[in-house]
Design a protein around this nucleic acid. Structure first.
Lengths: 245, 245
DNA sequence: GCCGCTCTTTGCTAAAACGCAAGGACAGAC
DNA sequence: GTCTGTCCTTGCGTTTTAGCAAAGAGCGGC
């Protein structure tokens, strides 16, 4: 009698932080009312300003969350990877999506519309607690980003962005850590609040110093520690601290 | 039989967005477990890095939320006014306060420790929904601020900051809208990601054009519309629209 | 293999923002 | 009143960042 796809979905949901510590009955309930949609590369799950209708969880692919300014400049808020939540605004009382969700590759997501989600929050208090935990972490991250933008120079912010990307999508290869997604200079500029020229110059300089290797939309961190030194603005290490003492 | 102070507190809580749409029984329950503390001017409710123990609601006074960078620079995240929540991180699963809460005048706050609050969230689903709504709004605001910091020049950000402050604490006086709190050039710099010299120059320029009047830690917006034009980067209005209409 | 598109680099110039230094202004203490 | 500490202003030189323009590099389509 058990509904195979529902059970399958429930099992996968259990691995997502938003659905941690729920009973299997609750997981099944959530899985039952989940819906699923596919979006092709370069298409949108939703766009900034659309009526916010559903909370999404990415199942496969990758999504880029962006905001467009009134002057037409774009800002990349974050990248969504499988298991991450996006479009949460809808379920949490915000009327229109504050940002756009664009698939950077063919992607699929589970989603629950706002009314369904509110209903689940009421029936499953632990789910609401999990959601609060998630939003609280998002706030902490955004506050950190505000602090960085307010106090740090461009080079430092770019170093931070690369380190974050390496943590999220880094893949060990022979000569370092590859950022395993196509990432243009323009993308990095939109993540750090600068322009593609400045990013290009910074990356060129790092490449000359052998900290990184770059290609078209491709970056390998060869000496991540050097980027940490830049990101944290630590004193440059001595050339030869060994022989002393 | 009714506990007078508890009832009084409950009535006042009902006006705070976090406690909207609750039954009076629930409000009373929340009021019963509320605690209260006073903090003198220039003292802290808590400091960045402290173990996060309680969600606060400001009752009277004013609180400044700040973050300190490792280099000792300060960033002002926001000002808390009576009825606003702060220290929410604690109740929502964050381990240490990500920012400091400093009283800019003698202040009093109600607070609930994290375990109590979690318990209330479970017993009162509507409370959890309200909290989610609140955190969602905070996220939207922070995203907007990131976008502004990434794409807008200093003058524009300062104009925005003044308009926001006017909306929050503005007081109509004879020649404009007074920002009704002591606000130094340094404060404005820490709110907008610049330094006190740049703020001073910008305010001087605006004062020369009669958009504002300034004094020591005091700013009056005489022509708020001009600041909107700067904040939104609108085309400057015609030179002589006055004589008509 | 060649074409065409997009992405990247870099010299150069200009604009924006920073930050010191020195002097002025204001408010509260005594 | 005068003193003292804090806040504010502004000239000036410096640093940082922006952004055009033009050329180079990489990749997919045909």
């Amino acid at each position: 009698m058990s509904d195979a796809p529902t059970d399958l979905i429930a099992t996968r949901l259990a691995r997502i932080p938003l659905f941690h510590d729920l009973t299997s009955a609750h997981l099944k309930l959530i899985a039952q009312v989940a819906q699923r949609r596919h979006v092709a590369r370069d298409a949108f799950f939703f766009q900034q300003g659309d009526t916010a209708v559903a909370l999404h969880v990415l199942d496969s692919g990758q999504v880029r969350m962006t905001q467009l300014t009134s002057e037409g400049e774009q800002v990349i808020l974050r990248f969504i990877r499988p298991g991450d939540i996006f479009g949460g605004a809808s379920a949490f009382g915000v009327k229109t999506y504050p940002a756009s969700a664009e698939a950077t590759e063919d992607s699929a997501a589970l989603y629950w519309n706002a009314a369904t989600m509110r209903d689940l929050f009421i029936r499953i208090p632990q789910l609401a607690l999990n959601a609060l935990e998630h939003t609280a972490e998002t706030i902490v991250q955004l506050q950190d980003r505000v602090r960085e933008l307010q106090t740090e120079r461009v080079e430092r912010r770019v170093a931070r962005a690369l380190l974050r990307l390496a943590r999220q999508t880094g893949k060990r290869i022979e000569n370092g850590v590859l950022i395993d997604m196509p990432l243009s200079r323009q993308d990095l500029a939109e993540m750090t609040g600068t322009n593609l020229y400045s990013v290009s110059r910074i990356l060129s300089a790092w490449e000359k110093q052998k900290f990184i290797e770059t290609g078209r939309e491709r970056i390998v961190l060869c000496v991540p520690h050097q980027l940490v030194i830049i990101a944290e603005d630590l004193p440059p290490p001595q050339d030869s601290p060994k022989h002393s003492d």
